[in-house]
Amino acid sequence: MDNPVDGEKTVSTRSVEIGVALLIFALGAIEMWDSWRLGAGWASDGPQSGYFPFRIGAILCGSSLIILFRAFRDEQAAAKNFVPKSQFRQVMHVLLPSLFYVFLIWAIGIYVASILYIGAFMRIIGRYGWGMVCAVPICVMAVLFMMFEVWFLVPLPKGPIEELFGY
């Protein structure tokens, strides 16, 4: 990973380090600003709402600035590849479908969405035959259904297809 081949280069570790530090700084600044709005001082009845968070925000900004400063001086991190392109693609292969999966839970309920998600993952990444792709997700979700809805009586989000079965 230290010596990236051409084409495997994405971004340097330093860039990501700087980006994350800036984000943390921004969060700290938002917290300070909002605490200031609520009042970060002393009221007649004691410390105001923003008293504690304002100080937390200040430390957050301070520490992120030091991280930022160190990152700028870190030549080693500047040369280092954050993640090789092929591995980054692997990560995206999980992340993007998972985001779509969360959208599907909202749209059609967790059971059908999960069956589609596990099935698609097995088919596309694991290259399983259709028999396995159909059987495994349905069995897994059946077990989870028994565990949550029947034994522990915890309702999960459901869509039109579960409605057909009377749930």
Partner: peptide, 26 residues
């Protein structure tokens, strides 16, 4: 390739059941 998505599904269920909220899953 089987365990990965199953673990993710379990995580999603776990996150949802805390407050029955989709926002939590996001």
């Amino acid at each position: 390739s089987i365990m990965g998505p199953v673990i993710l599904v379990i995580c999603a269920i776990g996150a949802y059941t805390v407050h029955n909220s989709m926002f939590d899953v996001w």
